[in-house]
Design a protein around this nucleic acid. Structure first.
Lengths: 320, 320
DNA sequence: TTGACAAATGTTAGCGCTATCATTTTGATT
DNA sequence: AATCAAAATGATAGCGCTAACATTTGTCAA
């Protein structure tokens, strides 16, 4: 028992015994059995993380933030991939909860009714990431996708583009909200045209960006800009426009979403909406870890915001 | 006891009892406690996966393959990120082994001596991925990085380039072997020049590709091609060359490594060495799962090979 | 020196499963 | 109906740890 204490609450054990125990632990190479610990204590140090994709850049940045912050702490990350399916998410939540996790981090606001009930009655902390919205189960950290895409659309309008289109691949709930933001702002400015919305259920790639912009230009050849649902598409759009000899930004403006590192390197550099993915992961993990140590946040939700990074691809007229 | 059997070995229980048990399980929403199971059985259904990076496209593709194949099976994936550090890898192996995993999947051939000993005496299956080499601990699946980069270098030479350079970011062991392959082939052809090797310890980005090619062109302005250690760098190189008005492929050839999807979409499209990352992940998981079910592979290692995908960025002279 | 209290350490039971072996049931065969 | 092996089910103990409480040791003031 004293050994158990020495390993988990060193301050409850005298310095003398502590040294002795540590020496023996070292000599024997003793490592506690987490299964036995979980069984006896009725809880684990596992923090479950459920994301819709492990490939998507966006989530891999968030994951990296989470892992970075978890590194060296006692918390073990358990990753689950819901592949954008609410049903798979439900199963994952069920599996994860059976492991008596200390906490659960999951994406977005759009859980199935069953999942929502599981979460509400769950005996662990819940943290929603990626989005901000009303009624968190527990804690929430993200930003407003609608507002971000509204700002991006305004940016295109302010740059002088008058016939903007929108391209998007696989429409998860967040993508839909971004599309909504575009539509709203375009309508308010009286420049909305449904023909300039091109979407597909296929997953997003650079090649798909080429195809979608080609589609757009055949359906609405007079389009003079696009807001892309993400940066892969934006890069594809750039390549396709270049192949067609469209001058960017003079004849055609391009704006991406997320501001991946490559947007600054592109030629011309591509305007994008910066989102704070790494920070979101780090902050999520830090927050969770605090909550589990008894340090409650003063508010249940954090909005990390966004930032329009204007670059050459929308610098119409201007020299830069 | 019969319930335990019904859930793990349904064929050892009569049809009648099985139906009865399943009905009750369903009604109660019973889910077995994995911790108790692990403690009693002395083993788990966890397969530990240790990769050097969770962000890098290469590993995220492999991870996706692994997850896809694990989906729906009884195997639980536990991911660890060694961040390219042999020491962190050692700690992760230790932590993972304390969980009594069914198997361990890890990257490459270059473990520390301590790690190697841990693995050799480990009571679980071991699978090395990403590379092929001698003396697997247990099983191995990957390809030869040296041969792949030799083939890429030959491709550049056959396309008529005579002063090829090499750029690389963070030199993990696999990158080093690729550099070695380049050097060897270039030397054999009598075109090797150490001034045309530009490397940096910084992690790879598209922007870094721009910088490295700029470096190369200032150190050895007469270079007429580069082999890039990966596709991020290749894309950056393309952008930088375009900014400098270098005509690709006529004046300068570019070859990447991995053949990320965007290489085909680029303008001009970029030659790259295709590697089978998704298949590697899938095959790894399938192989591991077979081995754990008693189906032994007939050979301890699989070489998945590579493929030179020749595109416009090295099509000197030719129309395409 | 004594008592009072806190700090440190120890005792006991049990977390929810599964390995092992014992027992009962089933079904085929004489 | 009796016999026997195989199939199915059951009883028991214990995996390695921790919660809860009990006991011992140490510290300080009166």
């Amino acid at each position: 028992m004293t050994v158990s204490r020495a390993l988990r609450n060193p301050d409850k054990v005298s310095q003398k015994t502590l040294t002795k125990i540590r020496a023996v632990v070292e000599r024997l190479g003793y490592i506690p059995d987490p299964a036995a610990s979980a069984l006896a204590a009725g809880k684990t140090n596992v923090i479950g993380v459920i994301v819709p994709s492990v490939t998507n850049n966006v989530f891999s940045d968030v994951m990296r933030g989470i892992y970075e912050e978890a590194e060296g702490s006692k918390w073990q990350i358990q990753l689950g991939n819901s592949r954008y399916s609410p049903l798979e998410e439900e199963n994952l939540v069920r599996t994860f909860l059976s492991q008596k996790p200390a906490g659960l981090i999951l994406s977005g606001l759009d859980q199935s009714e069953v999942t929502a009930n599981l979460l509400r009655s769950a005996d662990c902390r819940i943290l929603q990431i990626m989005e901000c919205g009303p009624d968190p189960y527990d804690m929430m950290i993200g930003f407003s996708h609608v507002e971000a895409s509204m700002a991006a659309t305004r940016h295109l309008l302010e740059a002088g583009y008058r016939r903007p289109g929108y391209i998007a691949a696989r429409l998860d709930p967040r993508s839909q909200r971004r599309l909504l933001g575009f539509q709203k702002t375009a309508e308010e400015a009286g420049v909305f045209d449904a023909n300039r919305i091109v979407t597909t259920p296929r997953p997003s790639t650079v090649t798909l960006g080429c195809e979608l912009v080609a589609d757009l230009l055949s359906k609405a050849p007079d389009s003079d800009a696009i807001l892309c649902n993400n940066d892969d598409l934006a890069l594809g759009a750039l390549f396709e426009c270049q192949r067609r000899g469209l001058r960017i930004p003079e004849e055609f403006g391009i704006c991406g979403f997320n501001d991946l590192e490559m947007m600054a390197a592109a030629n011309p550099s591509i305007t994008s909406v910066r989102t704070f993915r790494l920070d979101m992961g780090r902050e999520a993990m830090r927050w969770m870890s605090n909550a589990l140590t008894g340090i409650e946040p003063d508010k249940p939700a954090i909005d990390l915001g966004y930032q329009i990074i204007a670059r050459k691809s929308t610098a119409r007229g201007a020299g830069r």
